[in-house]
Simulated assay, not measured.
Amino acid sequence: MTAPPFPLTWLYVPGDRPETVAKALVSGADVVLVDLEDAVAPDRKEYARAATAELLCEPPPVPVHVRVNALDGPYAEADLKTLSPLPGLSGLRLPKVTSPAEVVRVAEAAPSSDGGAIPLYALLETALGVEQAFAVATSHRALRGIALGEADLRADLGVRGDAGLDWSRARVVVAARAAGLAPPVQSVHPDVRDLDGLAASCTHGRDLGFLGRTAIHPRQLPVIERAYLPAPEEIERAEAVLKAAAADPGAQALPDGTFVDAAVVAGAHRTLALARHRR
């Protein structure tokens, strides 16, 4: 099963809690991210892998991606060998990627159930990973996206305030666009009770060029969706831009003085496409 054309909500859930995974599948998230890495204690790794394999023996009701364990650790090989052939797997999220070679190695070692390439998503969680963003983004045709893992990156950089991550965020957005990938998904907001802070952070992320966000609790999903969906006034403006462009294909100005050119028209098309696919 593939993700919707514009997936906005991606819900993380621990792989060793099948009952929680079952709830996540009906939570309204566009994509469920089963985590075998940070959310699972070492003595629960094998159980989490087996429970996830059982889930993915049949296609679930929504796309399911799995974040496997560290690629240089003792669990990743078994994760990839066990899960990649299963028909219910829609993608693999690779933690702490620092080089294109890691992506290539996984792509070659993890064919899908039909023999093709499983969609891969690289998480950049260190300074070295961010420095390698474009190289990773162009490493293999199976790679469909890159994103930041901000908790680990914050610790690696010694960043105190949130603004200290903005350069890395912009770097990943630019690398994804330059590689022809979808816009990155924003990293999690760790305080599940701070919905106002989540909304403000999503607005900032959208301003930076992100599209959608990972979540760690279902209550965060509607906040993320509202923040990333075009507001009524954005839709109205996009429609006005396209109407003006249709009437006169040349460059012109809207009644409010805004200059309309090909780039503005392209942005209007993206806005309306997102609005249509989320109705």
Rank of each mutant, 00 (worst) to 15 (best):
A262G: 07
S168P: 09
L195P: 03
P18R: 15
R226C: 08
G91S: 08
A76K: 01
A238G: 10
L123C: 12
H65F: 15
H269Y: 13
R226T: 14
K96Y: 04
H140Q: 12
C202S: 08
G116Q: 12
R154F: 05
V241N: 01
K45Y: 11
D191C: 08
T52A: 04
A247C: 12
L208Y: 05
A50D: 15
A275V: 08
D30I: 06
V174L: 13
V32H: 03
P60D: 07
G164H: 08
L92S: 05
L123I: 13
V173R: 00
P18D: 07
V260F: 06
L124D: 02
V62H: 01
A41Y: 06
V26T: 15
V265C: 10
P63E: 02
D152A: 08
V34T: 07
Y47I: 07
H217R: 13
V21E: 01
H65W: 14
A231V: 14
P5A: 14
R226A: 14
V68G: 00
G164C: 11
A22L: 12
P95Q: 06
R44L: 12
E46F: 11
S112D: 15
C57I: 09
A200M: 11
A22T: 14
A155W: 11
A178G: 08
P95W: 04
D261W: 11
D166S: 13
R141H: 15
P63V: 10
R93N: 06
R44V: 09
I235F: 07
E46P: 02
S112E: 06
E108A: 15
P18C: 10
I216S: 05
A127G: 12
E233G: 06
D191P: 03
V40N: 01
I118D: 00
D194K: 06
V173E: 00
I216D: 05
L11C: 03
R206T: 09
E236R: 15
C57F: 07
G267W: 03
A29S: 09
G116E: 12
C202T: 06
A117I: 13
A142Y: 02
V130H: 01
E58C: 09
R219S: 14
H269D: 13
A155P: 05
D196Y: 11
G212P: 02
A215R: 02
R278A: 12
A199K: 10
P61K: 11
L33T: 05
L25T: 03
I224A: 03
P232Y: 11
D79M: 09
A135P: 01
L33I: 14
P255C: 10
G129A: 08
W10G: 02
A246K: 11
A137C: 13
H65P: 01
V64D: 00
R279W: 08
F6H: 14
V66P: 00
A109C: 13
S99H: 09
V32N: 00
G129V: 01
A155S: 14
D35G: 09
A266I: 11
R171N: 07
L25F: 05
P184I: 01
A268L: 09
V103S: 03
F210M: 09
A200Q: 14
S139K: 03
P111T: 12
T2R: 15
D156Q: 12
